[in-house]
Structure formats: C-alpha cells, structure tokens
Design a protein around this nucleic acid. Structure first.
Lengths: 208, 208
DNA sequence: GCTCGAACTGCACCTATGGTACAGTATACC
DNA sequence: GGTATACTGTACCATAGGTGCAGTTCGAGC
C-alpha cells in the first residue's frame, strides 16, 4: 500500500511541488518566489505557468499533495497497529507509539505541516486553499475520533471528556510539536509530545 | 500589575505595531505590505522609515512587544493562582483553569501567536527575530517547568515523564490549539486543549 | 512519414512593493 | 531662539508576480 520512493525520474511538475513545499515551509508562501522555483528546477517562467495557472494554483496543488501523503501515512500506521492488537485501546496505543517512532526517524527536524503553515498566511491564499486546510484538520478529528469511540465502548474514562476535542488534541500536539521542534531545532520534541498524548490516553482509559 | 487599556492616545509607532500584528497574523509577514500599514495608520512611507529602519526592524519590535505582553499575562494569571491556593499542584491547576478562561473570553477567535507565526516564515526574518522566537518558547518551558518541579517534590507522577517536554506540552497545545481555532474558526478549541492539559496533569500527579 | 498534443522556450511588457536617499517642515519643549 | 522629534514630499531603483503570445522540441498514434 505504501510506495516509498518510486525509481522513475520525477516529472517537472512533481519537482516543482517538492521544491515549493520545502521553500514554503522555510520561508512562507509569499516569500517563495516563482523565480527561485524555476531556477531550482531549471525551467523558464513560461514553463511554470504552463503547469500552474498562478501562484494560488500551485498552493492548491501543494495542499492536495500534502494531505494525500498525510492520509496514506496515517492509514499505514493504524492499519499496522490493528494487525498487532485487536483491542481498541491497545491497538490505538500501539498506533501512537508507531507514529512517535516514525516522527523520530524520518527527518533531521520535521520540515513542517503545510496545513498549519497556511493558517498563519491565511489571507495570502484563496478560499479553496483555506478550506482544504480546514478539511485536513477535520479529517484528523474524524480519524482519531473513530478510535476513541471504539475505546469508550469498552473502557469508561476516568474524567468526563469531550471526544471531539480529545481527537483534536492529537492535531494540536502534532502542529504545536512541529513548531517547537523547528523553533528549538530539536527533532525529539515532536515525538515526545505524541508520547505525552499516549500517556494521557492511557491514564484516561486504562483500568487500574 | 496588569494595565488593561491605557486611555492616552496610542503613539503612531504603537498604532503601526498594533496594525502590523493583526496583518502579520492574518496574511503572513511577507504579504504584510508597508503601503497598507501606512495607509491604515495615515502616515507616509517616510514616516514609517522614521520609526523602523526596515521591515525586519518592525518584525523585531513586533516580537519583543508580543513576548512582553505574553509574559505579563502569564505572570498575572499564576500570581493570582498562587494567591488562591498554597499547594503547588492545586495552584497550578487553578492557574491552568484561569488561563483557559482567559483564552475563552478575550477574543472572538484567538488572533494567533507571533512567535509561532515566525516559525513558518523562518527565512523571511533575520537571525535576531528567529532567536527571539526561540527564546519565547524557552521562557514558557522554564516557567511551566518551575511549577512542575515544585509539584513532583510533593506528588510522585503515575508515569515517569520528562519534565521539560511536559512543560513544552503547554506551548505545543497552545500553539496547536490556536492553529485549530483559526482553521476551524471555533474559539472553544483553544481553551478545550488547555483543559486537556489540566486533566493530564491531574491524572499524572493527583493521588487516588 | 505525418500529425497532433504535451511540455516547454523566448520575448515584451505592465504593475506593485520594498527599499534608499535626502531635503524640507510643523510643533513642542527648553 | 534653538534644537529635537515626528514627520511630509519627491525622486528613484530592483525585484517579483503576472499576462500574452509566437515559436520549438519530441514522442505516440495513425
């Protein structure tokens, strides 16, 4: 299900998106100049506008690509976790551990979340890009909420909590953890936050 | 200790900073044009450059102002919490509740954190601004770590946790909660995340 | 071997914006 | 009356996003 790195040479469009993603996460969208992009990829300005109608069209493609990659990764992790344990709570805890491990291994320091990056440059994007970003957040909510629903059926929580906001907590910790990681240039910060979420879930639902 | 809104008319410099903060949080730094700023405040471009050497100088002033306001707010909250209870754990829990309430009351939806906004527009700022942002995060770590140190002396945690990352968790949830609030246009998201942090602290340290 | 569409190049041109430089001015305080 | 503060006005430059359009290269299908 997970294709890691296909060998066929990336298309110009794909290379533009890849470079744009790196630049947007480091400099912000407005500071990411088309001129730098085409210089990096080795095409002309006309070539760029052949692939993308304008800069916002690039942003839209960037968001879509990011959200799809994201979903694929999470699907992979929690499918594996479901294989390893049938119980909803323990399977979820395993999934969170796998998630933390993945965030610890892949990058030097996490390059960032496109959906979060958009939020602080809101008005620089059109409505479609903004709504894609919000959809991404709601997908995470739905995804984690599904796990939590299965857990509460079997394990009563020690404190009464709102399950939507408990699901959102994972997004908040991921986005916040990424910001801290980037600010402090410490790649351990993000996985540590995921493990705190895991602790909280354990303390909330695991019987004594 | 807390001066809410002084009545004397704000100086031009102050009005520039106030407007710039709003614009940076909504559109990003690069998209915040000096032209719009001076139009909003009613001065000329020369007037702007009288107050700020260049755009990065504005960014530096913005960060400093934001961090100072931030510290003042947190000082106020936890000083009040210390007044209300002597015990380190309960005083901290009270402080977190006050913090959540403040985040619920003040704004329609939280306008954003300048320090976090900088992180996703990293290379658009000079080294000084970036380092101010990181200092802000470390100040939060130190601040919350102090509370946690006092708590662990009296209450052994149920799970062995790293106290620095537990202190960082508050920053992560605040920054992540703000992003979610802004993305979903829901002002309840941020206070809900603070209350989850409070729950986690309770479950970790409060004796059964 | 020809046609056609995809994936570009090249050039011309317009506008907005950040930024520099510098001379001049209104007002308040000393 | 002098000086500092807080500006205005004018002129000018480089870079960037963006538009428009004509021309080119190249591989696949007929």
């Amino acid at each position: 299900m997970l294709e890691s790195a296909s060998k066929k040479p990336a298309s110009t469009r794909e290379r533009l998106l890849e470079l744009a993603e790196q630049m947007v996460l480091r400099k912000g969208f407005a500071s990411t100049s088309i001129e730098e992009l085409i210089a990096g990829v080795g095409i002309t300005k006309s070539g760029f506008f052949y692939h993308f109608k304008d800069k916002n069209d690039l942003a839209r493609a960037l968001m879509q690509r990011y959200l799809e990659d994201n979903k694929r990764q999470l699907d992979g992790i929690f499918a594996r976790a479901a294989e390893l344990h049938e119980d909803p709570l323990h399977s979820f805890l395993i999934g969170l551990k796998l998630f933390a491990e993945l965030m610890n291994s892949v990058h030097d320091v996490h390059p960032g979340c496109i959906a979060a990056a958009v939020i602080y440059q809101d008005q620089a994007f059109d409505a479609e890009v903004r709504s894609l970003s919000a959809e991404g957040m709601l997908d995470w909510r739905k995804r984690f909420r599904t796990h939590l629903d299965r857990i509460v059926k079997r394990y009563p929580p020690k404190i009464d909590v709102d399950l939507d906001s408990l699901a959102d907590m994972m997004s908040a910790l991921a986005d916040g953890g990424i910001i801290l990681s980037k600010a402090l240039k410490d790649r351990t910060t993000l996985p540590a936050q995921i493990m705190h979420y895991r602790n909280y879930i354990k303390l909330l639902f695991e019987p004594a």
